[in-house]
Computed example of a mutant assay.
Amino acid sequence: MAELPTIAIATSDLPQGWMLINAADFDPEQHRVYDGLIHEPDSTGEEMAPPGPGPKLSDLNLTELRSLASDEKIPGRSGMDREELLEALQAKDYEL
């Protein structure tokens, strides 16, 4: 399956303040670009997260941290407590 270019748009619906959508779905009447960058899939087919400020991990609850850890494919995440998840995600360059 072919990978599609994506763009980060600002949203208040998610803790990190942004989400990725297909670049072809971007509508300047409806969307505001999060950081001014269009994101192309990298060579592995994984989408790149936008640079800049990440989510404030210390404000997330356990379920949100586990979801973020799942997105980052952190091994052992389901058995981690909140502090362990914070530490593992911080190692992935997320801000506390």
Rank of each mutant, 00 (worst) to 15 (best):
D35M: 03
A24N: 13
Y34M: 07
G52R: 02
L86P: 00
L86V: 04
R66L: 00
L68G: 01
L68F: 01
E40G: 06
D59W: 13
M1V: 15
G79E: 03
L62Y: 08
D59I: 14
P41N: 03
D59P: 08
S12C: 15
Q16E: 12
A23H: 08
Q30W: 14
R66P: 02
N61P: 03
D71I: 08
D59A: 13
L96A: 12
M19H: 05
P41D: 02
D93C: 09
A10C: 12
F26A: 05
D35T: 03
I21P: 01
G36N: 10
T6A: 12
E95L: 09
Y34V: 04
A10R: 08
T44M: 06
L14C: 11
A8W: 00
S70V: 10
T6C: 15
S43I: 10
P53W: 08
G36E: 09
R82C: 02
W18V: 01
T63Y: 13
G54N: 02
M19W: 12
I21T: 03
L68N: 01
S12K: 11
S12D: 14
S58F: 10
A2G: 15
L57C: 01
E64F: 02
D27F: 09
V33K: 05
D71G: 10
A2M: 15
M1F: 12
A91T: 03
S78F: 14
D13E: 12
A49C: 11
K92E: 09
Y94P: 00
I21E: 01
L65F: 04
E84A: 07
E72G: 08
E29M: 09
R82N: 07
L89W: 00
Y34S: 08
Y94W: 05
P15L: 02
R66G: 00
H31P: 00
L96R: 12
G17P: 01
G54S: 03
E40F: 13
G76A: 07
P41A: 02
I9N: 00
G54I: 03
R82D: 04
R32G: 11
A10P: 04
P53K: 06
L85F: 04
D27N: 14
R32K: 06
S78H: 15
N61M: 09
D13T: 10
A23G: 06
D13Q: 09
S43K: 07
L37D: 07
A88D: 00
P53H: 10
M48W: 11
M80S: 04
H31W: 03
D71N: 11
M80K: 01
P75E: 05
H39G: 09
E83R: 14
S78E: 15
T6M: 10
S70W: 11
M19I: 08
M80A: 07
T44A: 06
L89C: 02
